[in-house]
């Protein structure tokens, strides 16, 4: 498959890296807005739940961490361009902080950039060509794993008893909710036909 797609790719290789179309940018913004809104709706219920479960609420919260990573793999799989994941995460965080008033504050920009880099690395290593379960799972694991060291510093988990337990819960959550679930959503989106005009739709035609 790779050999058949080489000619058109090399023809536009000079501007390939920076030739973002407006609809691609718009898609990142839209994904950021929708997930920002859904996170915001979830967080409202979440605060009540974590107050109800007391200190253990914090641990159960880790189980849902992967959901925070969804934007990046979805954006990469649809647009298939370098930096799509990082930019999508940062836009989503800007929407959460500036428009929705997230309780983390502007430090969320930093976390989002780290998450985006982690989630994007496995896709970048396949040169944005492979979209199987393994790559998605690696993306979720790396996204969760990289940002863990930053949030452990920010929330003071270093030096506490449960550091390793937290890391394991977060990485597993990243694989399931931030990786595999992203593939389920992307495949479902592709079936509806709304993303046919993006790179993912062209890739399906090439096949």
């Amino acid at each position: 498959m790779a050999t058949t797609t080489t000619p058109p790719r090399s023809r536009r290789s000079t501007s390939w890296l920076f030739a973002w179309q407006l609809k691609d940018i718009m898609l990142l913004v839209v994904l950021g807005a929708v997930f920002g809104f859904l996170y915001w709706a979830l967080v409202q219920g979440w605060i009540a739940l974590s107050v109800a479960t007391g200190p253990f609420g914090d641990l159960t919260q880790h189980a849902l961490l992967g959901g925070w990573l969804l934007v990046a793999p979805i954006a990469i799989a649809i647009i298939r361009r370098p930096f799509a994941g990082v930019i999508a995460e940062i836009i989503a965080s800007v929407i959460e902080v500036v428009f929705l008033g997230s309780a983390v504050g502007p430090l969320l920009f930093v976390a989002a950039a780290i998450q985006g880099i982690g989630s994007e690395l496995p896709f970048a290593l396949t040169r944005y060509r492979r979209y199987n379960w393994l790559v998605y799972a690696l993306s979720g694991a790396l996204g969760a794993g990289l940002v863990f060291f930053y949030s452990a510093f920010r929330s003071g988990w270093y030096g506490t008893d449960l550091l390793l337990v937290r890391l394991v819960i977060q990485v597993v959550s990243g694989i399931v909710l931030g990786g595999l679930l992203a593939k389920v959503i992307v495949d479902a989106l592709a079936r509806t036909g709304v993303v046919d005009n993006f790179a993912i739709g062209r890739a399906r035609l090439d096949r």
């Binding site: 967080v43 107050v51 914090d58 919260q61 008033g101 983390v104 929330s155 003071g156 030096g159």
Partner: peptide, 22 residues
């Protein structure tokens, strides 16, 4: 009032450290 979510977040971080730091 706008501070309530931050307050909940602060309480969570506080209780975690109080209970799990040796």
């Amino acid at each position: 009032t706008a501070q309530l979510p931050f307050l909940a977040f602060a309480l969570g971080v506080f209780s975690i450290n109080v209970l799990s730091r040796p």
